[in-house]
Design a binder for these strands. Structure first.
Lengths: 201, 201
DNA sequence: TGTACATCAGTGAACGCGCGTTCACTGATGTAC
DNA sequence: TGTACATCAGTGAACGCGCGTTCACTGATGTAC
């Protein structure tokens, strides 16, 4: 466990990701450098290239890991409420907003493509999994199948809402509005509104 | 009008802003350099410093100019419909989404703080003006004063929604959802939903 | 258990690059008399 | 109208910097016999 004694500590990859996550939070998604990350991990500037192809590859890894945590948070939030309840839907939204608030840098990284790496298929898939959590909760609530276009549409509406609220929040735009916002009340109200407005149902 | 003959063309500032706007669209808010902007304007790399204090100052100018255009677009969109109509509200939202779609780079710049220049008071004010357009339309629609907390709250809800939809759109996340979206129908539906759900009114 | 060897995960020096910014300068423009 | 001068908006050379990435290397670890 001595820091330098562990020549091959086998943990560098994880440590680098952690360092980059920290840098992304401090300096923004573009304000990180491989060199600085290596420095923080107490390692030479060449070492990261033993674990990652290049700079974008590192960012991709951090984004992927962030998305995993986001999905888990949403799943756990939903699991704390009865299946099909309005609260389950609202709780997912709250988990989303909380994630954005706690890790605005990673949140921005995940949703900003930042370097034009929109085409990474694993990130695409992770994103779909996240959205899938919302879709499932909505489907349960509306007692319809997940592939029902109406379910997809309502889920997307909720997502837009929560996504916009998250961004406005971390960008400090919330203060523009005079109305103070209690997230839980707010999200419950929104969820109810969106899920109630069922045309022809 | 000969390009080089105009030693003092008096237009450099505007030309630089235009060049930076272009770079921001192409390479993202952080992917622009003063040097490249100067090159595009056909000017030495030191010239920009005659018009701007430093790099962030240029970005701030571009952001401010973008916000002006966004506000004008929203105002014009609203003006095309009767005062107090639902369409006026939806049109503002559509103008917002259209702006994001047309100039994703500038949109991101405006809402990403990017360099930590959240404290520029003129940008803050411009932002409040933009939000003011929404507030006014909502107030007209609900026949309540603009400073009514309920109006502010509804306006913020609409903003969250449209903002989130804009970001998801330009980040290519729209394709995650199976449901194709017609923006106008979508925004009308949303506006109606948000403005109708008046607790106790 | 001991030895030979392949692999693996680091080092550290070096490279070329483009950038932000400064500086002394210069030629064009505007103004006062 | 002409001249002297202040100002203004550029130039271009130079600086120091940190970065991404490569390279030959080295010492530790794991494995086969």
């Amino acid at each position: 466990m001595t820091p330098k004694a562990a020549y091959h500590h086998g943990d560098l990859r994880a440590q680098l990701i952690e360092a980059v996550r920290d840098l992304v939070e401090t300096h923004g998604p573009d304000g990180f450098s491989v060199a600085e990350a290596a420095r923080r991990a107490g390692v030479s500037s060449a070492a990261p290239y033993k674990h990652f192809k290049d700079r974008p590859d590192i960012l991709r890894a951090v984004a992927g890991e962030g998305m995993d945590r986001l999905r888990v948070a949403m799943e756990q939030a939903a699991a704390a409420h009865p299946v099909g309840s309005l609260e389950a839907v609202a709780a997912i939204g709250l988990a989303y907003v909380d994630f954005a608030r706690t890790e605005p840098g990673v949140f921005r990284l995940v949703f900003g493509l930042t370097e034009g790496h929109e085409n990474a298929p694993d990130l695409q898939e992770k994103g779909e999994c996240c959205f899938g959590v919302v879709v499932k909760a909505v489907a349960d609530r509306l007692k319809r199948p997940t592939n029902d276009p109406l379910v997809q549409r309502r889920a997307y509406m909720l997502w837009s809402f929560v996504h916009g609220h998250s961004f406005l929040h971390i960008d400090g735009k919330t203060r523009v509005s005079a109305a103070r916002i209690d997230d839980w009340l707010y999200l419950t109200e929104i969820s109810k509104g969106v899920l109630a407005t069922l045309p022809g149902a």
